[in-house]
Nucleic acid binder design. Structure first.
Lengths: 193, 193
DNA sequence: TTCAATCATTGATGTAGATCAAGAAATTGG
DNA sequence: CCAATTTCTTGATCTACATCAATGATTGAA
């Protein structure tokens, strides 16, 4: 159950086996079927989720009813509506499972207690946020400076594991284009090579 | 010199006056004239900067030579090429001053030592990154789901202090549109009201 | 105080990607 | 294994915003 989390955490911070074992009591395992929601906009989403198996996404729905994928998460990734997690305000994102999945949930009080009990976890979450900060700024820069085709190539290069695993229209949504446009981009790239 | 940093830090973490005073030795004050670079893409940018006075921006330059603003920073904001800071790889962003500015620089070894000496700073940087994570995800969601006009309104609402202070074409660049388009959007909004 | 640079505006025209519509292909769950 | 659903593709057309070009308004350095 906690094998993947153990290797993930212990690769990043100094922790004994005993300390890690102690930390597992803070995590709540949960199974999600494909299309099942972990969180809906409006809920108070007081946990962050570590993906043990499967694939999830967070997204918004605009006023026309169109979904816009903000993030994907597969094995060893974390996903959350961090704003809601940190402030207890209602969530602004939806999070659901794109495949049957297993997640480990950590709620806010548990995270506080975990960091207080094992300060190395404070460092762990800082490192996690640093990586995220970098990835988000790259995505912003890509959106500002690249065409749809270039963004797709960038996505393929950066997240090859996602390209084989996700439906195309989900990737299109993440890239900020329509499924039709992505289909045409792919055709064009096929012809080139 | 450190007044603004003191109130900024002490509003966020528990620190005695003595502890804060101790921490100031890690920061290197630096003055920047308008248009002066703090960092260029390709440099190794091994510090993060706290803005004491003035205004800076980070940006990329695309293959056509067009600049794309990734971030603005005014008083009490932090700015950096975090990837370069964390990895020692060459910077991917440019950072320069839009006004004459004073910054406090913290290099990577100093940050490590600071966090080791005063663990509250570990928490401080985690909090900082959390806020940033939220802001970045909101910006991504806005880019995915809003029109140029809606993004401008969102920007005005979120960062009113920037709107009065920054040249329009810098805001246009941040929003991912041309200065001409922003000018037309503003005209349209004037007429509406 | 002036001249050069920077910045904002406006009009004419171009285009990347959206939208609409329809059908084909692939998946999935019963 | 099959019907229902989801996903992908393709064509025709549309539109938000870009590009190009010119002019005026501000700003700032000497």
């Amino acid at each position: 159950m906690f094998d993947r989390l153990r290797s993930h955490v212990m690769a990043r911070i100094e922790l004994t086996e005993e300390q890690f074992a102690e930390s597992t009591r803070f995590f709540i395992p949960r199974h999600l079927r494909r299309k099942e929601f972990l969180l809906r906009a409006g809920d108070t989403g007081r946990y962050i989720a570590f993906v043990n198996r499967g694939c999830l996404r967070s997204y918004t729905i605009d006023k026309k009813g169109v979904e816009h994928v903000v993030q994907f998460a597969i094995e060893e990734w974390w996903i959350a509506d961090l704003y809601s997690f940190l402030t207890d305000e209602p969530a602004t994102y939806y999070i659901d499972a794109l495949e049957d999945s297993e997640v480990l949930l950590l709620d806010r009080p548990s995270q506080e207690e975990l960091c207080a009990t094992l300060p190395a976890y404070e460092r762990f979450f800082r490192l996690l946020l640093e990586r995220n900060y970098i990835a988000n700024h790259r995505r912003i820069a890509a959106t500002l400076s690249l065409t749809a085709e270039e963004r797709y190539l960038f996505f393929m290069k950066t997240y090859p594991q996602f390209v084989e695993r996700l439906p195309q229209h989900q990737i299109a949504s993440y890239l900020g284009i329509t499924p039709e446009s992505l289909s045409r981009i792919r055709r064009k790239l096929m012809q080139k090579s």
